[in-house]
Design a binder for these strands. Sequence first.
DNA 1: CGGCTGATTGAGGCTCGTCAAATGTCGTGG
DNA 2: CCACGACATTTGACGAGCCTCAATCAGCCG
Lengths: 216, 216
Amino acid sequence: MLSPIRAKTFENDYSLDAVLPAPGACARFHRDEEIFGEGEAADYVYQVISGAVRTYRILRDGRRQIDEFHFAGDYFGLEMTETHRINAEAMSDATVRMIRRGALSDLAAQRGDAARALFRLTAEGLQRCQDHVLMLGRRSAQERVVGLLLDIATRTRADAELDVPMSRQDMADYLGLTIETVSRTLTSLQDEGLIALPTVRHMVLKDRRALERLVA
Amino acid sequence: MLSPIRAKTFENDYSLDAVLPAPGACARFHRDEEIFGEGEAADYVYQVISGAVRTYRILRDGRRQIDEFHFAGDYFGLEMTETHRINAEAMSDATVRMIRRGALSDLAAQRGDAARALFRLTAEGLQRCQDHVLMLGRRSAQERVVGLLLDIATRTRADAELDVPMSRQDMADYLGLTIETVSRTLTSLQDEGLIALPTVRHMVLKDRRALERLVA
DNA sequence: CGGCTGATTGAGGCTCGTCAAATGTCGTGG
DNA sequence: CCACGACATTTGACGAGCCTCAATCAGCCG
């Protein structure tokens, strides 16, 4: 089961949450159901209420790259183009709030704090994306896997006990690896005593200090 | 020599150029000179007037990942944090316009079009970053190199004749490869007749159609 | 208890990295 | 103008890390 997740670690005064009217229209999606696809009109911006969502892109030959995992509180689908450049799917059964893009830009035009919140959201996404680039460009398989585990721990406010909300394939496609490499890396981390793998989707960080040193 | 470069391919109505007062304070930097470094106060936003700039991050052990190349017209250093998370250096002798961050946020607070321009700039950066992630996560060395060459061609509005403004090391650190692999890939592209390499920094795209098929 | 899906493990191969040497390029000074 | 030296790039040989393909194992649900 997934721990409760708050949207962001930093000042929430600038969060869209504070600006937006109370929960409007929501939709429910089943595991692996598409929320929006590349090329579709980008009429909505979304916020995860519960569950988890992945956004990704696909090359002609089927290679998939996951951009980002989105947990409760996170916004996604905020694009500047008329149509979506990326795809979004529910990773688990999920309820998602849908905000009309038009309404949002009206709000931003009227209220400075709303515009600032949108800007901040995009800038935070850019920061995370830059971290992702560094990871994919210059880190080893082990560093990538450890980095993801620590990221999940932080974002889910988990201490040592980790509920991993994604499959090995999702992890691989986020990290630019194959499922086999992800799997092998996890068992080798277990062999070294750094983590434990009670079940496939439940992990324990046994030596967080050492793990953090690995990605320093 | 570098071809003249315009800032962006799309609508410039929303560009900061249209909003900002005529050229304010500028600074000149020599090749490889630092413009700002990680951890420094982010007091300015920058625009390349002439020359080229790289922004990058470095891991403890020296591994470097270039985030982005910035050419004439491009803005960079636009971060939301108080201090810079990344580094910026001149790739060639460059003149750079410096805009006080405070002045920019005042402007954004007063004028909706300025706020929108800033937002758009950040969102475009995010798009480029997502493309970069896809490249690093799921593309082969050859696809990465070809992708970069085509990107340079587009951004410099070059047809077939390319002036490459960066070293092999810069290319490698942008593409998540080594200089040796970049070099080997370029000569193999030459052997296949897809490009020509008259000099180290001057390339000719001999079969652009075929090159574009390679990164489809 | 099967059967299905997803994860792990194993063997072998390919791509790209490492280390080293050769070659090219460019600026400087004779 | 040419020679030299410093540095960048290319090339080669080899090895490591990750991928591919295939088999086995573990959960999960009817």
